[in-house]
């Protein structure tokens, strides 16, 4: 479903990713782990098509399409979803308005009919209760004044409404206490599906105790330096990034 081949990416004239290869099949969950500055977020942004993240070599093939030729919104319509490390505040725009607009744009992009207000509210309420969220949160402006946990749960709610083919979770565990982490991870797990692939980007192993990956890729210095099963994450947790001869600035 997702095929990343020899991907080189520069940001502001500086090459950050130096030839990434990664392939992800339907129904699979892969983790990308790496120390700070390894290029994890760059990988997330380049998949979502953020301006300023320039692919200089290599390609990203998603469902047979050249992802790099598509705008961010076209990728969203095609089923690429990025759960942001730092969800953005949109003052003055209610969560409901935002979610309805996003959902209907994605549905239009997929050639489906738009939902009217009643249909939308019904669907939204189902998903909100599945994620044990407080609906009142959605009447407030998007992410404004939300706690870290509320923001991340809001990201998962969006994922559950938009039903992406590929979900990229960029450090979804950052800034969460253990309870919030468990709730968010349960939400993610409930969205695992044979039709959906997930790329879980994280610094720490702890998230992977809850979201158990099929495969783990270790990213350092803009390259994938090791790959393995879920046990690789545990080994990394024990020995640290030093086991790969990499120093972790954050550690």
């Amino acid at each position: 479903m997702l095929e990343i081949k020899n991907l080189h990416v520069t940001v502001g004239g500086k090459e950050i990713l130096h030839g990434i290869n990664l392939s992800l099949d339907e129904g699979q969950v892969h983790a990308v782990m790496g120390p700070n500055g390894s290029g994890k977020s760059t990988l997330a942004y380049v998949l979502a098509g953020r301006d300023g993240y320039e692919v200089t070599r290599g390609e990203i093939v998603f469902d047979g399409k050249d992802l790099n030729a598509m705008t961010p919104e076209e990728r969203a319509h095609a089923g690429v979803f990025l759960a942001f490390q730092y969800p953005v505040e949109i003052p003055g725009v209610s969560g409901l308005n935002f979610l309805k607009s996003a959902l209907n744009e994605v549905r239009k992009g997929r050639g489906e009919s738009e939902l009217d207000a009643v249909e939308f509210l019904k669907l939204m309420r189902e998903r909100v209760s599945e994620l044990k969220m407080d609906e009142a949160l959605l009447k407030r402006p998007v992410n404004v004044g939300f706690s870290g946990g509320e923001k991340k749960r809001n990201e998962i709610l969006q994922m559950s409404l938009l039903e992406p083919r590929l979900a990229v979770l960029d450090e979804t565990d950052s800034g969460l206490d253990i309870d919030a982490l468990r709730i968010v991870a349960e939400g993610v797990n409930s969205l695992r599906s044979p039709k959906r692939a997930m790329l879980v980007i994280t610094h720490y192993q702890r998230l992977l105790s809850y979201i158990v990956p099929d495969k783990v890729h270790i990213l350092a210095g803009g390259k994938i330096i090791a790959e393995g099963g879920k046990e690789l994450a545990l080994e990394l947790e024990e020995k640290g990034y030093a086991m790969f001869g990499v120093t972790d600035e954050a550690a």
Binding site: P72, I90, G92, E105, V106, L162
Partner: peptide, 21 residues
């Protein structure tokens, strides 16, 4: 970028941000 990642085109995204403003 956040809004476009959620499927809104650039003009709709601007419109939503400005209307919020």
């Amino acid at each position: 970028f956040y809004l476009r990642q959620r499927g809104l085109d650039a003009e709709d995204a601007v419109s939503m941000i400005v209307n919020g403003f």
